[in-house]
């Protein structure tokens, strides 16, 4: 259960989040949509406690995380897996070390078990056999998938995906969508997906929220959002730009 209330964050004079309220139930998969630069990634970072809000609260399973210090947050973050928009792989480590990072730190599994779990996770993202490559040797889409494998390999309760399918071909995008659904259904984990892809939003989401001008502008089931008569939502899901935007 994730509850965000009246979350505010400004950078300089720019108010990125202006009182966001949302709640995501356990086992739900929530999709967050919104224009580029509207603050989706910033919102995700607040949910996982990477940045402190100016005001407002974030509660994970009833526990407020905004007042916690870094060491206390580490315990909370163990519940999370996060795929960063830019993958954020450790460039000095190999793919295998990246994916097995947390398992290796925790040392509850033997080395052979870690190797096996990592191989399985890589298999899930169609990257079997890339264990010994360094992130610099991978394509952008491959990096993203390694980031995905790293986020899911330790089977967290909550998985946060920042644009998991951006930059991937349609077939791989589809398999990533299926993976998101599978993680949700088999492990009963909560997912939060930020995406621009309306097709995958329909497929993976059972709860769509649209962030606009720093607040949750629309909130509902995917079909409700698709058929919304609200002009902003309508324009967004159908990809219609204002005519004046095209004047030059």
């Amino acid at each position: 259960m994730i509850e965000v209330s009246q979350l505010r964050k400004s950078y300089g004079t720019q108010e990125v989040l202006a009182g966001v309220d949302l709640s995501i139930d356990r086992g739900e998969s929530a999709v967050i949509i919104g224009g580029s630069g509207c603050g989706k990634s910033v919102l995700l970072r607040h949910i996982i406690g990477l940045i402190q809000p100016d005001s407002g609260d974030v509660k994970i399973d009833g526990e407020s995380i905004v007042e916690l210090n870094e060491r206390q947050l580490i315990k909370v973050r163990r519940k999370f897996g996060m795929l960063f928009q830019g993958a954020a792989l450790f460039d000095s480590l190999t793919v295998e070390e990246n994916v097995g990072f947390l398992l290796d730190r925790e040392q509850t599994l033997s080395r052979a078990e870690i190797k096996k779990t990592v191989a399985e996770a890589l298999e899930l993202v169609d990257l079997a056999g890339t264990q010994d490559k360094k992130p610099a040797e991978l394509s952008g889409g491959m990096r993203k998938r390694v980031g995905l494998a790293r986020a899911i390999v330790y089977k967290p309760e909550i998985i946060v995906y920042d644009e998991p399918t951006t930059g991937l071909d349609p077939v791989v995008s589809d398999s990533i969508d299926q993976l998101v659904i599978k993680m949700r259904d088999q492990l009963n984990c909560t997912s939060i997906v930020v995406t621009h892809d309306t097709r995958s939003m329909r497929r993976v989401g059972n709860h769509v929220m649209m962030l606009h001008h720093g607040v949750i502008h629309a909130n509902g089931k995917p079909d409700e959002i698709f058929n919304s008569t609200d002009p902003i939502v309508h324009k967004f899901v159908n990809g219609i730009a204002d005519p004046k935007d095209l004047e030059f």
Binding site: I48, L50, I74, F84, A88, L89, F90, D91, F101, L102
Partner: peptide, 18 residues
């Protein structure tokens, strides 16, 4: 510094590592 600007330090923090 490079790890910071490429979000690797944030990634570390999400992987429950101080």
């Amino acid at each position: 510094g490079t790890m910071k600007v490429t979000e690797q330090i944030d990634a570390l923090r999400t992987l429950a590592t101080h």
